[in-house]
Simulated scan of single mutants.
Amino acid sequence: MEARRSRSAGADKRFAALDLLATLVAVVDDRGHVRYANHALEDAIGLSRRNLADVPLTEWVTQPELLQSALDGARGHEYAVIRYDTHLKRLLREPLPVHLVLASTEWPDHRVVEMLPLEQQTRQEREERLLEQAQANKELIRNLAHEIKNPLGGIRGAAQLLQMELAERDDLVEYTEVIVHEADRLQSLVDRLLAPHRRAPVMADVNIHEVCERVRAIILAEFPRGLSVVRDYDTSIPEFRGDRELLIQAVLNLAHNAAHALKDRIAAGDACITFRTRVQRQVTFGKRRFRLALELHVIDNGPGVPEEIKDRIFYPLVSGRDGGSGLGLTLAQTFVQQHQGLIECDSRPGYTDFKILIPLP
Protein backbone atom coordinates (compact mmCIF):
# COMPACT_ATOMS: atom_id res chain seq x y z
CA MET A 1 0.00 0.00 0.00
CA GLU A 2 2.77 2.49 0.94
CA ALA A 3 4.57 1.71 -2.33
CA ARG A 4 1.38 2.41 -4.30
CA ARG A 5 0.84 5.66 -2.40
CA SER A 6 4.41 6.70 -3.09
CA ARG A 7 3.91 6.07 -6.79
CA SER A 8 0.69 8.10 -6.67
CA ALA A 9 2.42 10.92 -4.88
CA GLY A 10 5.17 10.78 -7.49
CA ALA A 11 2.62 11.67 -10.18
CA ASP A 12 2.05 15.06 -8.58
CA LYS A 13 4.11 17.01 -11.10
CA ARG A 14 1.87 16.00 -13.98
CA PHE A 15 -1.25 17.21 -12.24
CA ALA A 16 0.16 20.15 -10.24
CA ALA A 17 -1.74 22.71 -12.33
CA LEU A 18 -4.98 21.34 -10.86
CA ASP A 19 -4.02 22.95 -7.54
CA LEU A 20 -4.71 26.33 -9.16
CA LEU A 21 -8.41 25.48 -9.48
CA ALA A 22 -10.94 26.52 -6.85
CA THR A 23 -13.20 23.55 -7.69
CA LEU A 24 -12.63 20.11 -6.17
CA VAL A 25 -10.71 17.84 -8.57
CA ALA A 26 -9.55 14.24 -8.42
CA VAL A 27 -7.68 12.27 -11.07
CA VAL A 28 -8.67 8.60 -10.99
CA ASP A 29 -7.43 5.53 -12.83
CA ASP A 30 -9.58 3.01 -14.68
CA ARG A 31 -10.45 1.29 -11.39
CA GLY A 32 -11.73 4.59 -10.01
CA HIS A 33 -8.87 4.82 -7.51
CA VAL A 34 -7.53 8.28 -6.68
CA ARG A 35 -4.21 9.10 -8.34
CA TYR A 36 -4.26 12.79 -7.44
CA ALA A 37 -6.39 15.15 -5.35
CA ASN A 38 -5.98 18.90 -5.62
CA HIS A 39 -5.74 21.26 -2.64
CA ALA A 40 -9.41 22.21 -2.81
CA LEU A 41 -10.48 18.55 -2.56
CA GLU A 42 -8.04 17.94 0.31
CA ASP A 43 -9.56 20.85 2.21
CA ALA A 44 -13.12 19.77 1.49
CA ILE A 45 -12.68 16.14 2.61
CA GLY A 46 -10.24 16.89 5.41
CA LEU A 47 -7.53 14.46 4.27
CA SER A 48 -4.21 14.94 2.51
CA ARG A 49 -3.71 13.61 -1.01
CA ARG A 50 -1.23 11.10 0.39
CA ASN A 51 -4.00 9.55 2.50
CA LEU A 52 -6.43 9.66 -0.42
CA ALA A 53 -3.99 8.07 -2.88
CA ASP A 54 -5.13 4.70 -4.29
CA VAL A 55 -8.41 4.87 -2.38
CA PRO A 56 -11.57 4.29 -4.47
CA LEU A 57 -13.28 7.63 -5.00
CA THR A 58 -16.61 5.82 -4.71
CA GLU A 59 -15.93 5.60 -0.95
CA TRP A 60 -16.21 9.39 -0.72
CA VAL A 61 -19.56 9.91 -2.45
CA THR A 62 -23.01 9.12 -1.08
CA GLN A 63 -24.16 7.26 -4.21
CA PRO A 64 -21.15 5.10 -5.10
CA GLU A 65 -23.09 3.02 -7.62
CA LEU A 66 -23.76 6.08 -9.78
CA LEU A 67 -20.08 7.04 -9.87
CA GLN A 68 -19.05 3.44 -10.56
CA SER A 69 -21.53 3.27 -13.44
CA ALA A 70 -20.19 6.53 -14.83
CA LEU A 71 -16.61 5.24 -14.59
CA ASP A 72 -17.58 2.02 -16.36
CA GLY A 73 -19.26 4.01 -19.13
CA ALA A 74 -16.24 6.30 -19.52
CA ARG A 75 -13.87 3.34 -19.65
CA GLY A 76 -15.99 1.78 -22.40
CA HIS A 77 -15.99 5.11 -24.29
CA GLU A 78 -19.76 5.25 -24.04
CA TYR A 79 -19.65 8.87 -22.84
CA ALA A 80 -17.23 11.76 -23.27
CA VAL A 81 -18.54 13.74 -20.31
CA ILE A 82 -20.93 12.70 -17.55
CA ARG A 83 -22.63 15.12 -15.15
CA TYR A 84 -24.91 14.63 -12.16
CA ASP A 85 -25.55 15.94 -8.64
CA THR A 86 -24.42 14.00 -5.59
CA HIS A 87 -22.87 14.51 -2.14
CA LEU A 88 -19.20 14.37 -1.18
CA LYS A 89 -18.47 12.77 2.19
CA ARG A 90 -16.28 14.75 4.61
CA LEU A 91 -14.51 13.99 7.85
CA LEU A 92 -16.41 15.21 10.93
CA ARG A 93 -18.76 17.29 8.77
CA GLU A 94 -22.01 16.86 6.90
CA PRO A 95 -21.76 15.64 3.27
CA LEU A 96 -21.27 18.48 0.79
CA PRO A 97 -23.78 18.82 -2.11
CA VAL A 98 -21.81 18.94 -5.37
CA HIS A 99 -22.31 18.93 -9.11
CA LEU A 100 -19.99 16.15 -10.35
CA VAL A 101 -18.42 16.15 -13.81
CA LEU A 102 -16.50 13.10 -15.05
CA ALA A 103 -14.38 13.57 -18.19
CA SER A 104 -11.63 11.80 -20.09
CA THR A 105 -8.09 13.21 -20.09
CA GLU A 106 -4.99 13.30 -22.25
CA TRP A 107 -3.37 10.88 -19.82
CA PRO A 108 -3.99 7.22 -20.81
CA ASP A 109 -6.27 5.29 -18.44
CA HIS A 110 -7.01 8.35 -16.32
CA ARG A 111 -10.23 10.32 -15.76
CA VAL A 112 -10.80 13.72 -14.19
CA VAL A 113 -13.59 14.06 -11.65
CA GLU A 114 -14.46 17.70 -10.98
CA MET A 115 -16.90 18.62 -8.22
CA LEU A 116 -18.44 22.08 -7.96
CA PRO A 117 -20.03 22.66 -4.55
CA LEU A 118 -23.62 23.69 -5.15
CA GLU A 119 -23.39 26.11 -2.22
CA GLN A 120 -20.33 27.67 -3.87
CA GLN A 121 -22.21 28.12 -7.13
CA THR A 122 -25.07 29.79 -5.23
CA ARG A 123 -22.58 31.93 -3.34
CA GLN A 124 -20.85 33.08 -6.52
CA GLU A 125 -24.19 34.16 -7.96
CA ARG A 126 -24.96 36.01 -4.71
CA GLU A 127 -21.56 37.75 -4.77
CA GLU A 128 -22.08 38.88 -8.34
CA ARG A 129 -25.43 40.37 -7.34
CA LEU A 130 -23.81 42.12 -4.36
CA LEU A 131 -21.10 43.64 -6.53
CA GLU A 132 -23.56 44.79 -9.17
CA GLN A 133 -25.80 46.20 -6.44
CA ALA A 134 -22.87 48.03 -4.82
CA GLN A 135 -21.85 49.59 -8.12
CA ALA A 136 -25.40 50.71 -8.83
CA ASN A 137 -25.72 52.09 -5.29
CA LYS A 138 -22.47 54.02 -5.65
CA GLU A 139 -23.58 55.73 -8.85
CA LEU A 140 -27.04 56.45 -7.46
CA ILE A 141 -25.66 57.90 -4.21
CA ARG A 142 -23.06 60.04 -5.95
CA ASN A 143 -25.56 61.53 -8.41
CA LEU A 144 -28.30 62.00 -5.82
CA ALA A 145 -25.96 63.58 -3.26
CA HIS A 146 -24.71 66.13 -5.77
CA GLU A 147 -28.27 66.93 -6.84
CA ILE A 148 -29.25 67.54 -3.21
CA LYS A 149 -26.16 69.46 -2.20
CA ASN A 150 -26.53 72.48 -4.49
CA PRO A 151 -30.14 73.46 -3.67
CA LEU A 152 -29.49 72.65 -0.02
CA GLY A 153 -26.83 75.34 0.19
CA GLY A 154 -29.27 77.84 -1.34
CA ILE A 155 -32.01 76.92 1.13
CA ARG A 156 -29.67 77.35 4.10
CA GLY A 157 -28.34 80.68 2.82
CA ALA A 158 -31.83 82.05 2.20
CA ALA A 159 -32.94 80.97 5.68
CA GLN A 160 -29.98 82.77 7.27
CA LEU A 161 -30.75 85.97 5.36
CA LEU A 162 -34.38 85.74 6.39
CA GLN A 163 -33.29 85.17 9.98
CA MET A 164 -31.30 88.42 9.88
CA GLU A 165 -34.32 90.33 8.56
CA LEU A 166 -36.54 88.89 11.29
CA ALA A 167 -34.08 89.45 14.11
CA GLU A 168 -36.72 91.17 16.25
CA ARG A 169 -39.51 88.68 15.61
CA ASP A 170 -38.67 85.81 18.01
CA ASP A 171 -41.76 83.85 16.99
CA LEU A 172 -40.62 83.79 13.34
CA VAL A 173 -36.87 83.40 14.01
CA GLU A 174 -37.67 80.05 15.59
CA TYR A 175 -38.92 78.80 12.20
CA THR A 176 -35.80 79.96 10.38
CA GLU A 177 -33.67 78.18 12.98
CA VAL A 178 -35.53 74.96 12.23
CA ILE A 179 -34.81 75.40 8.50
CA VAL A 180 -31.09 76.01 9.15
CA HIS A 181 -30.86 73.08 11.58
CA GLU A 182 -32.56 70.65 9.20
CA ALA A 183 -30.46 71.89 6.27
CA ASP A 184 -27.31 71.22 8.33
CA ARG A 185 -28.58 67.74 9.17
CA LEU A 186 -29.17 66.96 5.50
CA GLN A 187 -25.76 68.38 4.62
CA SER A 188 -24.17 66.02 7.16
CA LEU A 189 -26.04 63.08 5.61
CA VAL A 190 -24.89 64.05 2.11
CA ASP A 191 -21.29 64.38 3.33
CA ARG A 192 -21.46 60.88 4.78
CA LEU A 193 -22.87 59.51 1.52
CA LEU A 194 -20.04 61.08 -0.46
CA ALA A 195 -17.26 60.31 2.06
CA PRO A 196 -16.13 56.96 0.53
CA HIS A 197 -15.65 58.56 -2.89
CA ARG A 198 -13.78 61.68 -1.83
CA ARG A 199 -10.35 60.16 -1.31
CA ALA A 200 -8.40 57.17 -2.52
CA PRO A 201 -7.41 54.57 0.10
CA VAL A 202 -4.06 55.24 1.81
CA MET A 203 -2.39 51.86 1.54
CA ALA A 204 0.14 50.58 4.09
CA ASP A 205 0.88 47.36 5.96
CA VAL A 206 -2.10 46.46 8.17
CA ASN A 207 -2.34 44.03 11.08
CA ILE A 208 -5.98 42.99 11.25
CA HIS A 209 -5.77 42.27 14.97
CA GLU A 210 -4.68 45.84 15.68
CA VAL A 211 -7.80 46.92 13.80
CA CYS A 212 -9.95 44.58 15.91
CA GLU A 213 -8.38 45.74 19.16
CA ARG A 214 -8.99 49.39 18.29
CA VAL A 215 -12.66 48.67 17.55
CA ARG A 216 -12.98 46.52 20.68
CA ALA A 217 -11.69 49.37 22.86
CA ILE A 218 -14.15 51.84 21.30
CA ILE A 219 -17.13 49.52 21.72
CA LEU A 220 -16.31 48.66 25.35
CA ALA A 221 -15.86 52.36 26.15
CA GLU A 222 -19.31 53.07 24.72
CA PHE A 223 -20.98 50.00 26.29
CA PRO A 224 -19.04 49.39 29.53
CA ARG A 225 -21.67 47.17 31.20
CA GLY A 226 -23.65 44.16 30.07
CA LEU A 227 -21.59 43.52 26.92
CA SER A 228 -18.57 41.25 26.47
CA VAL A 229 -16.38 41.41 23.36
CA VAL A 230 -14.66 38.07 22.83
CA ARG A 231 -11.41 37.63 20.90
CA ASP A 232 -10.98 34.49 18.78
CA TYR A 233 -7.90 35.26 16.72
CA ASP A 234 -5.66 33.27 14.40
CA THR A 235 -2.40 35.05 15.21
CA SER A 236 -0.63 33.50 12.20
CA ILE A 237 -2.51 35.78 9.76
CA PRO A 238 0.08 37.92 7.94
CA GLU A 239 -0.05 41.67 7.45
CA PHE A 240 -1.49 42.88 4.17
CA ARG A 241 -1.71 46.12 2.24
CA GLY A 242 -4.71 48.19 3.19
CA ASP A 243 -6.06 51.45 4.53
CA ARG A 244 -6.07 51.01 8.30
CA GLU A 245 -8.52 53.82 9.02
CA LEU A 246 -11.05 52.63 6.45
CA LEU A 247 -10.89 49.08 7.82
CA ILE A 248 -11.31 50.34 11.38
CA GLN A 249 -14.40 52.27 10.26
CA ALA A 250 -15.80 49.23 8.43
CA VAL A 251 -15.38 46.91 11.42
CA LEU A 252 -16.63 49.61 13.79
CA ASN A 253 -19.80 50.03 11.74
CA LEU A 254 -20.47 46.30 11.98
CA ALA A 255 -19.73 46.22 15.71
CA HIS A 256 -21.88 49.29 16.35
CA ASN A 257 -24.80 47.68 14.51
CA ALA A 258 -24.33 44.53 16.59
CA ALA A 259 -24.18 46.48 19.87
CA HIS A 260 -27.36 48.42 19.09
CA ALA A 261 -29.13 45.18 18.15
CA LEU A 262 -28.10 43.78 21.54
CA LYS A 263 -29.74 46.49 23.66
CA ASP A 264 -32.11 44.04 25.37
CA ARG A 265 -29.34 41.56 26.10
CA ILE A 266 -27.06 44.38 27.32
CA ALA A 267 -29.82 45.30 29.79
CA ALA A 268 -29.96 41.64 30.85
CA GLY A 269 -26.15 41.50 31.12
CA ASP A 270 -25.54 38.60 28.70
CA ALA A 271 -24.78 40.40 25.41
CA CYS A 272 -21.78 39.11 23.46
CA ILE A 273 -19.90 40.18 20.34
CA THR A 274 -17.14 37.93 18.99
CA PHE A 275 -14.29 38.98 16.72
CA ARG A 276 -13.03 35.84 14.95
CA THR A 277 -10.20 35.79 12.40
CA ARG A 278 -9.30 32.88 10.16
CA VAL A 279 -7.46 32.19 6.89
CA GLN A 280 -9.36 30.63 4.00
CA ARG A 281 -7.42 28.84 1.25
CA GLN A 282 -8.18 28.68 -2.46
CA VAL A 283 -11.13 31.04 -2.24
CA THR A 284 -13.06 32.56 -5.13
CA PHE A 285 -15.10 35.72 -4.79
CA GLY A 286 -15.85 38.67 -6.97
CA LYS A 287 -15.24 36.42 -10.03
CA ARG A 288 -11.59 36.13 -8.98
CA ARG A 289 -9.66 33.34 -7.32
CA PHE A 290 -7.21 33.94 -4.47
CA ARG A 291 -4.72 31.58 -2.87
CA LEU A 292 -5.39 32.98 0.60
CA ALA A 293 -8.05 35.26 2.05
CA LEU A 294 -8.69 36.80 5.44
CA GLU A 295 -11.97 35.92 7.14
CA LEU A 296 -12.99 38.39 9.83
CA HIS A 297 -16.25 37.53 11.58
CA VAL A 298 -18.24 39.97 13.72
CA ILE A 299 -20.71 37.71 15.52
CA ASP A 300 -23.42 38.68 18.00
CA ASN A 301 -26.09 36.84 19.97
CA GLY A 302 -28.84 39.34 19.23
CA PRO A 303 -32.27 38.86 17.68
CA GLY A 304 -31.01 38.64 14.10
CA VAL A 305 -31.65 40.74 11.02
CA PRO A 306 -35.37 41.33 10.41
CA GLU A 307 -36.65 39.05 7.65
CA GLU A 308 -38.22 41.91 5.70
CA ILE A 309 -34.84 43.62 5.11
CA LYS A 310 -32.48 40.63 4.91
CA ASP A 311 -32.07 40.96 1.16
CA ARG A 312 -31.61 44.75 1.34
CA ILE A 313 -29.36 45.34 4.34
CA PHE A 314 -26.50 46.69 2.22
CA TYR A 315 -28.76 49.15 0.42
CA PRO A 316 -28.30 52.79 1.49
CA LEU A 317 -30.84 54.22 3.95
CA VAL A 318 -32.16 50.75 4.90
CA SER A 319 -32.06 50.31 8.68
CA GLY A 320 -33.38 47.67 11.04
CA ARG A 321 -33.66 50.00 14.07
CA ASP A 322 -35.45 53.21 14.93
CA GLY A 323 -33.22 56.23 14.50
CA GLY A 324 -30.67 54.39 12.34
CA SER A 325 -29.29 56.23 9.32
CA GLY A 326 -29.10 53.11 7.17
CA LEU A 327 -25.57 54.01 6.06
CA GLY A 328 -23.39 51.89 8.35
CA LEU A 329 -23.50 48.67 6.32
CA THR A 330 -23.43 50.48 2.99
CA LEU A 331 -20.25 52.34 3.95
CA ALA A 332 -18.67 49.21 5.48
CA GLN A 333 -19.30 47.28 2.25
CA THR A 334 -17.82 50.15 0.21
CA PHE A 335 -14.68 50.34 2.38
CA VAL A 336 -14.14 46.56 2.17
CA GLN A 337 -14.72 46.51 -1.60
CA GLN A 338 -11.98 49.14 -1.91
CA HIS A 339 -9.71 46.33 -0.62
CA GLN A 340 -11.00 43.88 -3.30
CA GLY A 341 -13.12 42.20 -0.64
CA LEU A 342 -16.75 41.84 0.33
CA ILE A 343 -19.01 41.38 3.34
CA GLU A 344 -21.46 38.50 3.73
CA CYS A 345 -24.20 38.03 6.32
CA ASP A 346 -25.61 34.90 7.97
CA SER A 347 -28.38 35.71 10.43
CA ARG A 348 -31.00 33.94 12.48
CA PRO A 349 -32.50 34.60 15.92
CA GLY A 350 -29.73 34.42 18.52
CA TYR A 351 -26.90 34.47 15.99
CA THR A 352 -25.77 37.02 13.42
CA ASP A 353 -22.43 36.73 11.61
CA PHE A 354 -21.11 39.48 9.36
CA LYS A 355 -18.08 38.03 7.57
CA ILE A 356 -15.47 40.24 5.91
CA LEU A 357 -13.39 38.56 3.19
CA ILE A 358 -10.19 40.27 1.99
CA PRO A 359 -7.46 38.74 -0.23
CA LEU A 360 -4.10 38.09 1.46
CA PRO A 361 -0.67 38.22 -0.23
Rank of each mutant, 00 (worst) to 15 (best):
residue 72 D to T: 11
residue 88 L to I: 07
residue 64 P to Q: 12
residue 78 E to S: 05
residue 76 G to K: 04
residue 109 D to G: 07
residue 75 R to Y: 07
residue 100 L to C: 02
residue 95 P to L: 06
residue 112 V to R: 11
residue 81 V to I: 07
residue 73 G to T: 08
residue 102 L to D: 04
residue 115 M to G: 00
residue 104 S to K: 10
residue 74 A to F: 00
residue 102 L to R: 01
residue 83 R to K: 04
residue 98 V to S: 02
residue 116 L to D: 08
residue 61 V to F: 02
residue 75 R to N: 10
residue 77 H to E: 12
residue 108 P to L: 12
residue 113 V to S: 09
residue 103 A to N: 06
residue 65 E to W: 06
residue 108 P to A: 06
residue 71 L to K: 03
residue 85 D to A: 12
residue 111 R to E: 01
residue 75 R to K: 05
residue 115 M to V: 04
residue 108 P to T: 09
residue 75 R to L: 10
residue 91 L to M: 13
residue 84 Y to M: 00
residue 93 R to P: 06
residue 78 E to F: 06
residue 75 R to Q: 06
residue 98 V to M: 10
residue 105 T to R: 04
residue 66 L to R: 15
residue 71 L to Y: 04
residue 102 L to V: 06
residue 92 L to R: 12
residue 103 A to K: 11
residue 112 V to A: 13
residue 95 P to F: 06
residue 89 K to R: 12
residue 91 L to K: 08
residue 98 V to F: 11
residue 69 S to V: 03
residue 104 S to A: 15
residue 62 T to D: 10
residue 86 T to L: 10
residue 97 P to G: 03
residue 77 H to R: 08
residue 101 V to Q: 09
residue 86 T to H: 07
residue 99 H to G: 09
residue 84 Y to W: 09
residue 100 L to I: 04
residue 87 H to M: 13
residue 76 G to D: 08
residue 97 P to A: 02
residue 111 R to F: 15
residue 94 E to Q: 14
residue 73 G to V: 01
residue 64 P to S: 05
residue 114 E to A: 15
residue 97 P to M: 03
residue 90 R to D: 02
residue 65 E to M: 11
residue 83 R to L: 02
residue 91 L to E: 10
residue 77 H to F: 11
residue 91 L to Y: 08
residue 61 V to N: 06
residue 65 E to D: 09
residue 107 W to N: 14
residue 70 A to K: 01
residue 63 Q to M: 13
residue 73 G to D: 12
residue 83 R to Q: 07
residue 116 L to W: 11
residue 65 E to Y: 10
residue 115 M to F: 08
residue 85 D to N: 07
residue 66 L to P: 00
residue 64 P to V: 11
residue 77 H to V: 03
residue 61 V to S: 07
residue 107 W to E: 15
residue 107 W to Q: 15
residue 112 V to F: 12
residue 91 L to R: 14
residue 80 A to Q: 03
residue 86 T to Y: 09
residue 68 Q to D: 14
residue 110 H to P: 12
residue 106 E to D: 14
residue 88 L to Y: 03
residue 85 D to M: 02
residue 76 G to W: 00
residue 69 S to L: 07
residue 76 G to R: 05
residue 73 G to M: 08
residue 95 P to A: 12
residue 107 W to Y: 15
residue 111 R to Y: 15
residue 104 S to H: 08
residue 109 D to Y: 08
residue 99 H to K: 13
residue 104 S to I: 05
residue 72 D to A: 11
residue 72 D to Y: 03
residue 115 M to K: 07
residue 65 E to S: 14
residue 67 L to R: 02
residue 63 Q to E: 14
residue 94 E to L: 13
residue 115 M to E: 06
residue 83 R to E: 07
residue 100 L to A: 01
residue 81 V to E: 03
residue 62 T to I: 04
residue 62 T to L: 08
residue 111 R to K: 05
residue 75 R to T: 07
residue 82 I to V: 05
residue 90 R to L: 00
residue 98 V to Q: 05
residue 108 P to G: 06
residue 93 R to N: 14
residue 65 E to Q: 14
